[in-house]
């Protein structure tokens, strides 16, 4: 038995966790908000994408043209109308806990809204390439997973380039380092927060579309990914983008490689265990800076 197939599968699933986690870490890095509605937002993007796909039958990957901007707008508006007032009221605290609970409440709203409109059924987008399998030597990988791996890698690279090389990216990083100093340098932090939130949800749009051809859609689909994304983010260090990259790979690999030796349920306990051990040994995560 070779481990290669499971490693590649793990890498592709890990890449998706990573993409979801990067959005989470971006929000935390810039405004110290732990977004408990992240999974619900992912669900929102998947359900919208599924509905559009079911109505038109367009290749899901092309839907990014619609879903991407739409999700960006959703994130932008969420920040502006929901998060901002609460964040403002808590601006003297280091850890805005009210915001954390606000997003948790918002996820209930989103999930049940989806339940009311979409119903509780499990659905899956059966595209014409859903069952295609590529074989490289002795390993094989299904087409949606391979495409997913490529797309997430490209998007991760784009995000990195955006953060490093463009002016809005620089503003984002500056605000994350020190909100007040950044504001003194003339950066509109309100605007920056909203953009960060928008990018974070736009990343979810990509993740949702990548998942669509091989994963089921249901109003509670976000929960699994959200918990995983939290683990990835804390593992890598809250607020650290490279940390999210490494954390995603670690979790993806544990999940699939360990599944070769034990049952899937024990694997998920193992993930929580690794998570807790890292947290207790190095509370700031693998790449995080110690908190003050």
């Amino acid at each position: 038995m070779s481990l290669m197939p499971s490693i590649i599968n793990g890498a592709s699933m890990g890449a998706i966790y990573r993409l979801i986690a990067m959005g989470l870490t971006l929000i935390f890095g810039t405004m110290r908000v732990t977004n408990f509605a992240h999974g619900a937002m992912l669900m929102l993007s998947m359900i919208t994408a599924y509905s559009v796909w079911a109505a038109t039958g367009i290749n899901p990957y092309l839907l990014i043209v619609i879903i991407g901007p739409l999700m960006f707008f959703v994130g932008y508006a969420t920040q502006l109308f929901l998060i901002r007032p609460v964040l403002k009221a808590e601006s003297d605290k280091n850890d805005p806990i009210g915001v954390l609970l606000l997003t948790a409440g918002f996820s209930i709203v989103l999930e049940n809204l989806a339940l009311m409109i979409f119903g509780a059924d499990y659905r899956m987008a059966q595209t014409d390439f859903s069952n295609t399998v590529f074989t490289f030597g002795r390993t094989s990988l299904s087409a949606p997973r391979l495409y997913g791996l490529i797309i997430t890698l490209v998007v991760s690279a784009l995000l990195w380039a955006f953060l490093q090389c463009t002016e809005p990216g620089r503003q984002l990083r500056a605000t994350g380092q020190d909100r007040n100093t950044a504001a003194l340098m003339g950066i509109n932090s309100e605007q920056t927060f909203a953009v960060a939130f928008g990018i974070s949800t736009a990343l979810l749009a990509v993740a949702g579309l990548v998942l669509l051809p091989f994963y089921y859609v249901t109003p509670s689909v976000g929960n699994v990914f959200q918990t995983r994304a939290f683990i990835v983010v804390v593992l890598g260090g809250l607020g650290s983008v490279p940390g999210a990259l490494v954390g995603g790979i670690i979790i993806g690999l544990i999940e699939t490689v360990a599944a070769q030796f034990m049952t899937a349920s024990v694997t998920s306990v193992l993930i929580y265990l690794v998570f807790l051990i890292v947290l207790f040994v190095k509370p700031s995560g693998l790449f995080g800076t110690p908190f003050h």
Partner: peptide, 28 residues
Amino acid sequence: FPIFNLRGAYYTLSTVAIGEGIVVLLTN
């Protein structure tokens, strides 16, 4: 004992992980 060293979001997230871990254990 270990968890009270953590603050804010880290503390909350680790309680989430412990909770979900216990659910998985009980389920299996």
